[in-house]
Nucleic acid binder design. Sequence first.
DNA 1: CCCTCAAAGCTACCTAGGTAGCATTTATAA
DNA 2: TTATAAATGCTACCTAGGTAGCTTTGAGGG
Lengths: 237, 237
Amino acid sequence: MNIGLEKYRHYYETLTESELFRHVTHNSLNQLLEISAAQNWPKKTCILDTSHTLYTFHILITGKIKVYHFDSSNDRLLTLFLLQDNDVFDIFSLMGCGTHKVYYEALEDSEVLCIQVPLMKEWMKENPLVHKSFLSYTVQKMNVLERFIINVALEDIPTRLARLLYNNMDKSSRQYQSICGLSHKELGALIGTTRAVVNRHIQNFKEEGILEVSRNQITITNIHLLKEKLLEKRSSY
Amino acid sequence: MNIGLEKYRHYYETLTESELFRHVTHNSLNQLLEISAAQNWPKKTCILDTSHTLYTFHILITGKIKVYHFDSSNDRLLTLFLLQDNDVFDIFSLMGCGTHKVYYEALEDSEVLCIQVPLMKEWMKENPLVHKSFLSYTVQKMNVLERFIINVALEDIPTRLARLLYNNMDKSSRQYQSICGLSHKELGALIGTTRAVVNRHIQNFKEEGILEVSRNQITITNIHLLKEKLLEKRSSY
DNA sequence: CCCTCAAAGCTACCTAGGTAGCATTTATAA
DNA sequence: TTATAAATGCTACCTAGGTAGCTTTGAGGG
């Protein structure tokens, strides 16, 4: 990597804070940075080509990246993950698990470290302890996926939407962190439905006094009512 | 472990064939068996108590075990995984990822090795290479989950059912392996719907000449028609 | 400043799939 | 054997959510 010293420090310190590289020596961390290429992905950059997804491993330094699947038959997106600081992708290609087809899009300006898969494999071989961290990380992600699938398969859309809002709300400030500023279409992709349906239920929530909408921003006005949405389940049947 | 020599050999050889323990020394594998307790879970045994799920790690030697979530509000099951020989569970508890609530049920008589989580952690610490195998294994499972969620969120039930049948059919013999003998209710749990709906579509498939039904057994009569079900998607809209 | 386009709001329609209920068949056990 | 329970097949009903199409709003760029 050939960059300014300040940038380098910035990357270095971010990696230090990551649980993935916590037990890696300073020396090894520097070696990792040596084989990395830093890239800036501006907002709305869409990464589609396989050189990125199949042969490159990525570390997200700052920003927000959406991992999604595209279904051509009904023209719909499904967001599998929202990656934040210190997330890594794509472990699938790292493990030679080649058949999964996902796309990436930067939802905010993002700094990304790119590492060729063979180089990364080499580095991991010399730092075998990271396998443990990666395992822990992957299991956590799998837990997220597991809950996701249970939601999509067993819960109706008002419940899923309420859960999405609730989970992403900072309980004290009632502000949103990760899903702040997303369009209804993006919200739909996050819970497995379309923008029209999301909009419909947001209007319902508004009427019920759960939230208020003001240009590109959803504000929860009654957190208790929101929470009730999660618990009521389908008892109306 | 205190068992007959033959059983011991049987377990040992099964583990040797597992990709999870491929690079483990004979000595370590014996140590693993030493801290294991062998159990036989008869068909339809349902494991619910947390001593099994939360504090014990399991290796499935022979048999078939269903990992499922139960939703009390609408009284429905969702099968997340069908575990076969040499599968392991539950990695979540091993990684201290305590919040996932799943149940286990033996669909066939199963031989299981049970290992206390602290002992397993100790053993893994002395055999750090297994973290790599476990990582690879977990990533593969995650890939399965990822495809599952895409199916459930974006595809209709005829497609999901057709895919389930197709994936679990031995293409040459047209026999089923893993889902053979499952009830419509079980099939529903595998694709995220109810038995009534599964039955409805099986009747449709029958009328279309895709399959035949004879007491607890589904036989595909036209594999091409079945495959078309997968590809036609929702073009009828 | 206006122009453009995406996002949001809303109406109307339709169908896949969830539900309820029952009758029939098959399996398991007493 | 009979009895009990489970699995299957089938009917009828209903509603959540997908779709189409349009208007309104507002943000960002020239």
